[in-house]
């Protein structure tokens, strides 16, 4: 972890900390809604923060987004409805879990394809026959010399 980034992230954190609208809406909602809301909230990025979900952030915008999630859940919307609503409003950027689509195919298929290729490579290489250490054959000249030595009187 490099401190500079933490620092910048925390600067934003600290700056937002002192904002007046620190409404923590959670406490006003029934437990069942709260539990579902947190699962949804962890999937949504606080779009003004440094890599924080709206559940983790103290930013005013995150608080508003949290309230929206809960209100929608209370109103009977499904988790998917809320996520797509947020996506309409803030774009793909709001989704901490990137959607599977054209520009994220590398992200989703990449690791799986890589593992597949690696395992394929592994299977191929374990099946490979061991290469025999090369046994050098003697050249005609050397063979003749050897024969001469062998035949020589000792």
């Amino acid at each position: 972890m490099n401190n500079v980034m933490k620092l910048i992230g925390s600067l934003i954190f600290a700056a937002t900390l002192s904002s007046p609208s620190l409404g923590q809406s959670q406490i006003e909602y029934p437990d069942a809604i709260e539990i579902r809301a947190r699962d949804v909230g962890r999937q949504l990025r606080c779009v003004v923060c440094q890599n924080q979900s709206i559940e983790e952030s103290d930013a005013a915008l995150a608080a508003d987004m949290r309230r929206l999630v809960r209100d929608r859940l209370l109103a009977g919307n499904s988790e998917d409805d809320i996520i797509s609503l947020m996506r309409d409003r803030y774009g793909d950027y709001v989704l901490l879990m990137p959607p599977v689509q054209g520009n994220t195919i590398v992200l989703w298929a990449g690791p799986a394809a890589m593992i597949f290729l690696f395992l394929l490579w592994w299977v191929v290489s374990v099946r490979a026959k061991p290469v025999q250490p090369s046994v050098s054959t003697l050249s005609d000249h050397d063979a003749a010399k050897l024969a001469a030595l062998r035949n020589a009187d000792l």
């Binding site: 962890r42 999937q43 990025r45 890599n51 979900s53 774009g91 793909d92 950027y93 709001v94 989704l95 901490l96 879990m97 990137p98 520009n103 994220t104 992200l107």
Partner: peptide
């Protein structure tokens, strides 16, 4: 492309 996407904890966990 100028498109903004996020890759966060849910992706890495998965």
């Amino acid at each position: 492309t100028g498109e903004k996407i996020s890759v966060g904890a849910p992706y890495f966990d998965l």
